[in-house]
Each structure stands twice: as C-alpha cells, then as structure tokens.
Nucleic acid binder design. Sequence first.
DNA 1: TTATATACAAACATGGATGTATGTAAATTA
DNA 2: TAATTTACATACATCCATGTTTGTATATAA
Lengths: 205, 205
Amino acid sequence: MVRKTKEEAEQTRKALVDAARTVFHACGVSRSSLDKIARQAGVTRGAVYWHFQDKAELFFAMREDVFIPMIERTDAFLYDAAYRNPLDAIAASISEFFRVLDDCTVVREVFEIMISRCEYVDEFASVQEEVGRPAQEFLEKIERMYQKAAAEGYLRAGISPEAAARDTWAFTSGLLHLLLGCRKDSGLAAEIPGMIATHMALRRA
Amino acid sequence: MVRKTKEEAEQTRKALVDAARTVFHACGVSRSSLDKIARQAGVTRGAVYWHFQDKAELFFAMREDVFIPMIERTDAFLYDAAYRNPLDAIAASISEFFRVLDDCTVVREVFEIMISRCEYVDEFASVQEEVGRPAQEFLEKIERMYQKAAAEGYLRAGISPEAAARDTWAFTSGLLHLLLGCRKDSGLAAEIPGMIATHMALRRA
DNA sequence: TTATATACAAACATGGATGTATGTAAATTA
DNA sequence: TAATTTACATACATCCATGTTTGTATATAA
C-alpha cells in the first residue's frame, strides 16, 4: 500500500504529530531525528517531508494543537458570568489550567517539551515570542478582572489592580515552571489548589 | 608555542568556559559544537578534550562558576542580622538576586542558557535536579524566615508561614522565567523592585 | 477508461560532530 | 642536563542527520 486515501493521509499526519510529541518528550527536540519520529509513527521520513517542511513545522503543529484549546478553556472560566466576584473567576481560571495540566498527558507533555526540552534559538526563537504573547495577554486579562474587582469592592485596600495582576502573573508562571521543571517534585501537584486559594485570599477585601 | 605554563593552562581553561557560555548563549547547547567553542576561545578541540571530558562537563563547569556565588550572595542578605524584620531580609535577598541578574552579563547569560537554551534530557537531566535542589532549599529557607516573622508578629494574620513561603517561592520563580524567558519584555526589569515591594506588602501585618 | 496527481518509500549525496589516536615542543622534574 | 610530563594541535575513523531526488502503486479526476 503506497498511495492512501485523503482520510488515511490525514491520519498519517496526526500520527506524525503524536509521534513527534512522544519523541520530543523522550529525547529532547534537537536529538529527535526525523527518522526516529517517522519510525515511531510507523512510516518513513518520506511521509514527514510530505506533510511538513522540516522539524520546526512539525513542532509548531504539535504546539498549536494544545495551546489554542488551552487558552479557550481557561478564558471560558475567566469570563464566566456565573462568578459574581471577579477574584473567583481568576482563581477558577488558574485552577482549570493546572487541572488540565494534571490529568491530560498530551497537554502536560507539550508544556514539558516547551519548558525543558527545547532550545529557543534560530528557528525556535520565534516560539519564545509565541509563548510570550499569551503570557502577556494573560496579564492584561487578569488586570482588567482585578480592575473590575476593585470597582466592585472585592479587592483588598492598599493594592492596585495593576500590582495585583502582576503578582498573580508571576505566581502562575512560577507555579507552572516549578511543577514541570523538576521531576518527582514531592507531590507539588497536590498542593496547587491550596496554593491558589492562599494566593487569592491574600488579595480579597 | 605548544606547551604552556600551569598558569597559562588555567587561563586556557577559563577561556574555554567563557567561550562555552558565549556560544551556548548564541547557538543553544546542542548546536554548540566543541569546535565552535574551541575556535571562540582561540584554541582547538584538543584543548577542550584535555581540560574536559565532554560538552556536559564544560556545561557543568560554566554553571557552577556562577551558581554557587549567587546563592552565597543572596543568602548573605537573607541572614543579615541588620534586618530586624525577617520580611525585610526576604525582600532584600530577592531584590539582590534580580539586581545581580540585571547588571551582571555573565550571570544573566548563564541563567538564560539554563532556562531557554538547554534541553534537559539524558546527561542534562541531572542538571534539572541540581537546579531543583537550590530552588527547594530556597523554599525551606524562606519558610523558616516566615516562621520567625510570624513568631515576632510581623506576618499578617490569616496566612501560615508555609503558605506564605510557597507563594513567595512561586512568585520568585515566575519572575525569573518571565524576565529571562521572553526577550524584549517591554521593560519588565524596571518593574521588578516595585513588584517585590508589592508582593511583600501583601503579607505584612 | 485513461491520465494525472497523490502519498508516500527508497536511494543518494553531503556535511558536520564526536571520540580517539598520534605528534610535538616546551615546561618540569630528577 | 637528560628524561619525562604536560598542554595542547593535528589527523583519522565513524556515525548520524538532513535535504533532495527518484520510483511507484493507487486514489481521484476528466
């Protein structure tokens, strides 16, 4: 069997993205040869070069598959009208982020690859910007939420919405890196809900 | 000139570590061939293999050169008896960390390499643990300081020393990654002192 | 039904990186 | 001062990854 139907071809493409994730995670991006990835997917390099221009394009495909849905999911909580108090929405959004990270292997692998198995130089330097943008947007989103919280009297006196947002921004980023950066981290994952609660409690009126 | 005096040899070693840092920072660790590094240092690969077993050993040497002094410097502030309030010592220690990071190019380059230009797999998987340990120790140190602060009535009511420590831990880690992770970060560096002050103010009694 | 484009596999060519082995002139040591 | 290390430079052998080219059976279009 050489020529495949369109569906089968699309299936091959997905198998390649899956294989790339697995191999990237096990070997690191630079040591993941296209041959390794192709074998993992049960095809040859020919298939890789047919569907993607090079390793970088495969990487980008893998990344987008989980990044965009992740942002949509967390945003849904952030903007959920069910939360009267914007601080609750912020807490829920962050909690959801780490919940998905905890019980979705695919997502966790992609984040682990991006945090500790990829070198951000040359073709991949742009990835850093693509990661930096959502982070910056997250800051702006929660800043607006904190402003709303302040206007409605939910925010503790003495702290500005901007300052609160930046503190939460750093907190979230740090939590992500501490969680995924060091393997076998003595059960940090279990502490996360409590840490988020504590963090938010500090800024409640 | 072939055979060098002991001093000159030690100078060559240092030149190699410096060159490694420069090349690692520019090309990423995996794309930094030992030939590139040797040329940058003005020698050949022969010198590299004389002084180091392989690239990993070079990497470790580069890292230790800045890591140990950094910990000593920040610890000095943390344990400085001049601070009556332990919260001030914590703030000073963190401030010092980012101050050094800001005006010492060598230190900043090493941290940037470790954060975004190295893949933590195989030989480098251990690096992750070596980085994780100081982070864990930092958590324990500030936890003790927060306990002291609580005992002396400096800590805001309603937050436990453990929870305060973990929040500060995540904050510091996040700040580091946000600062070094995304290049041209619209002057985040300038905001850091204010962010630290805000962060600490949230937990003062 | 035939022609053509598709979805790969297989073969080819190239270059770069690693590790090791060997050479060697000067610094040290005896 | 002769013998021996030292601190490299140079040469060699091997492997692996990449990109490209060619081949080909089959799905699809005309």
